[in-house]
């Protein structure tokens, strides 16, 4: 176990280096929330979204943080792992004296570190340039942390499982990115959730992103804003339940389907 952890840390370090040096990955998995925040918050400036004096930037930040969870874990892994399967990374690792657990520890280490850095930059940009208010109570900070952890965990496992879907590394992003985009549009990242058609709201409720976005609204919006939520409350219990269920499902799925080599090999 000691060795798994030690080599897992070694993996996390090299994974991070490669994550940031790969331009595509640095742009679409790391920088995108910052870029979108700057664009949307600049366009809509201090426009209020109609309740409790909440600015669009403040509302949008919750969606960008939730999206950051999805980008750094699910989108990142579901695109990178098929490429690693193609370019010989996984085969090389299989031939090393390394417990397989170290590979997954390394991936998780990369995901959590990249997310932490991303959120730090996002908050600094938001506070300095767009007048965003940080969470107002310790309990909101606590919620921020457990929602982030549970969200990253479930979406990391789902990313590992989904990595078997793209047949080749090339083209993986064409399969994964649209899925993320559809979830973002239906989960209230770009629009106020309750202004979406009901069927869209129902669709999004099956997936983690809607619940992550909603929980982040609890963290960043004033309490009075919850009347605009679908159920009129923040529904944190339901959020924990859905994320917990996806974590278990993701774990079982990843365990069953994850492969080190391409199909037919």
């Amino acid at each position: 176990m000691n060795r798994s952890l030690r080599l897992g840390r070694l993996r996390a370090g090299i994974e991070l280096k490669q994550f940031f040096r790969d331009r595509e990955s640095a742009l679409f998995n790391f920088m995108l929330p910052m870029i979108l925040l700057i664009i949307f918050a600049s366009v809509f400036a201090n426009q209020l979204i109609g309740f409790e004096q909440v600015t669009f930037a403040q509302y949008f930040l919750a969606g960008m943080i939730a999206s950051g969870i999805l980008y750094t874990s699910f989108q990142n892994l579901a695109i990178a792992i098929p490429m690693e399967r193609d370019d010989g990374t996984l085969k090389r690792l299989e031939g090393l004296p390394m417990p397989k657990a170290s590979y997954f520890i390394g991936k998780a280490g990369m995901v959590f570190t990249a997310y932490a850095a991303q959120i730090a930059i996002l908050l600094i940009v938001g506070v300095l340039f767009y007048g965003i208010d940080l969470p107002s109570t310790p309990y909101r900070w606590f919620t921020f942390i457990w929602v982030s952890v549970l969200g990253l965990l479930s979406c990391t496992l789902l990313g590992l499982a989904f990595s078997v879907v793209p047949k080749q590394g090339r083209g993986a992003s064409a399969i994964v990115a649209p899925i993320v985009l559809i979830l973002q549009f239906t989960s209230g990242v770009f629009f106020v959730f309750t202004q979406l058609p009901t069927w869209m709201q129902n669709f999004a409720s099956f997936f983690p992103l809607k619940w992550l976005t909603q929980a982040m609204r609890y963290v960043f919006l004033p309490d009075g804003a919850q009347v605009v939520e679908a159920s009129g409350t923040w529904d944190l219990g339901m959020c924990a339940l859905v994320l917990g269920a996806w974590t278990i499902a993701g774990f079982l799925l990843a365990l069953k389907v994850f492969r080190w080599s391409a199909r037919g090999q």
Partner: peptide, 10 residues
């Protein structure tokens, strides 16, 4: 192994 293309960014 034959023809590896990994580690390009290091």
């Amino acid at each position: 192994l034959q023809s590896d293309r990994d580690l390009g960014d290091l």
